[in-house]
Amino acid sequence: MPIKTQKIIGQVVFVMLAFYLDGLMKWSFLNNMNKSSFTIVPQLMLMALVLLTMRIDNRRTILIYGIVFGLIYDSYYFGIIGLYTILLPLILVGVDHYKFLFIKNTVGYELSIYFLALTAMQSGIYLLERLFRLTTSNFGDFITYVLGPTLLWNVVVFFILYVPLANLSDWLVKYRRESK
């Protein structure tokens, strides 16, 4: 099996593992925290996809990842195909479009990209749910009780997991050694 195929399989396994850890965190650890009016949505899969998008140069691959993993996320959590299937590819293509503005990826830069992607994802989900009448909460409640706690939780998790996830995504995207 060629090394490129192995790396692509590794990328898919990496994102699926992040998806699994999303669910594990949501249902075991955060289940006790979401008893009050606050709702925290872990987004490790989005974090893994943003880190891979920052390193992959092929927009077609990014778009395929966004559609496939959006379908998987929708079918598992929502049962309504469309929310993540539409938003995830759009956000990943947006990240891919703007990643060339900076020369070197740093922690602060990748955190800001992830923060913006997470904000766009959660806001887009809220707007689509309002459009399809799946929620009745107003925008102020959404910001206070969903978006704020979600951003805070995911930024803390980003700082904790950045080094291992960034190194793993670097390794999964590079196909050969660079010359010194």
Rank of each mutant, 00 (worst) to 15 (best):
F142R: 00
D170E: 14
S169A: 15
S169T: 15
V155Y: 00
L147F: 05
S169W: 09
L172W: 03
L172Y: 06
T150R: 02
P164W: 10
V163W: 11
K174V: 12
E178P: 11
R177Y: 12
A166E: 07
A166G: 04
Y175K: 11
L168A: 10
L168I: 11
G148D: 04
L151I: 13
L161Q: 03
P164K: 09
N154T: 05
A166T: 06
V156N: 01
L165K: 02
L147M: 14
F158I: 01
Y175Q: 14
P164H: 11
R177F: 15
V155E: 06
K174M: 08
V146H: 00
S169Q: 14
Y145S: 02
V155M: 10
V155D: 06
I160N: 05
D141N: 13
V173S: 10
T144F: 13
L152G: 08
L172Q: 08
D170R: 11
P149Q: 01
I160Y: 01
V146E: 00
P149C: 06
N138H: 08
F159I: 05
S137K: 08
P149G: 03
L165I: 05
F158H: 02
P149W: 02
F142V: 07
T144C: 03
F142L: 03
R176K: 15
N138V: 08
L165R: 01
N167W: 13
Y145D: 05
G140H: 02
G148F: 12
L151S: 02
L161C: 08
D170N: 15
K174H: 11
Y162S: 02
L161G: 07
R177C: 11
L161E: 04
G148Y: 09
L161M: 10
L152S: 07
L152K: 04
V163P: 02
L168M: 12
L172M: 12
I160D: 01
L165F: 13
P164C: 10
L147G: 00
E178M: 14
I160K: 04
S179F: 12
V146Y: 03
P149Y: 03
L168P: 01
R177W: 13
L168K: 09
L147V: 03
D170M: 06
R176W: 11
I160T: 12
G148K: 09
I143T: 06
E178K: 15
L147K: 00
R176Y: 13
